[in-house]
Design a protein around this nucleic acid. Sequence first.
DNA 1: CTTGGTGCAAACATTTTGCAGCACA
DNA 2: TGTGCTGCAAAATGTTTGCACCAAG
Lengths: 159, 159
Amino acid sequence: MDLEPIPEIEPGQDIPAIFEPLCAVFRRRLKSDGQKYTPERARVLDSVIRMEGAFEAEQLVADLRESGYRVSKATIYRTIKLMQDAGIVQRVLGGDDVPRFQMIYGAKPDDTIVRVDNDEIISIDIPELIELRDKICAKYGLTPSSHRFQIFATGEKKS
Amino acid sequence: MDLEPIPEIEPGQDIPAIFEPLCAVFRRRLKSDGQKYTPERARVLDSVIRMEGAFEAEQLVADLRESGYRVSKATIYRTIKLMQDAGIVQRVLGGDDVPRFQMIYGAKPDDTIVRVDNDEIISIDIPELIELRDKICAKYGLTPSSHRFQIFATGEKKS
DNA sequence: CTTGGTGCAAACATTTTGCAGCACA
DNA sequence: TGTGCTGCAAAATGTTTGCACCAAG
């Protein structure tokens, strides 16, 4: 491919600073495995960073296609897998059963109530959880990057 | 099919009492939707109840086949969907990306730390979460059946 | 020249659907 | 007689793989 050369840290133009280390994380991980940070992989990472919240693999395909970068589906899936290995994204399920991915690093916490009787998803905000998780991680000598709290509930009181 | 008639509450022989209402829940839900509690569906529910923790759809197929009940794959998948609608099971993802299902009713909460740098999963026990979730649900007029708390962390202190 | 990466298309795994026949109200 | 349920096989999704060729060290 004849894309421009890859800068040392290629965060794209309008990517929040919080995501900048991501690129470095990915590059480091690839390098330590004897793998390369190619233009295609940079494009996929770029696209992932731009996604808001959870996204489907197919959205990456579409997004990259729109951007004019023809990255093959196979490469996209392969790159997603690499990013999973690098701890950058994870696979998740929403209320529907569509498999999606979401960023781990820099992701904002995801606290929800899932109505198991009608698939409704209610976002809630529980600041206490952050200190709770930090406390727990400290006990294990780990550094938390994000968390996810799902409550499964039914609506007895209302339909 | 020439199976024995379905008793009013057919909990199987050695199913813990905690699961008994499940059958009633399922029957009630089906009835209210003008659907039927057939022998095949009873068999699938039976099999689901016997599964420990999360299970793959294919395990139900195998389990039912072993039991000598030939329930078609299509019916099993259709029944799983009905049970999802009834709020009895939900789809989940484990550390690998294999889609699985798990019981909601009677399921024990699932609190874990996910080491994003090496995929290690550490089970933790946080009793406070139960009261927290109950408090939150009460605020929304909902009845919690289970929850899941995942912390994503890296091991800075040890590898 | 060796190792890794890519695109393409075929293969795969899992789940859904169309359809003809069956069961029961 | 109509409505729902079943099995089967085909179709639809979502993801992975085999292969031939390309690029960089």
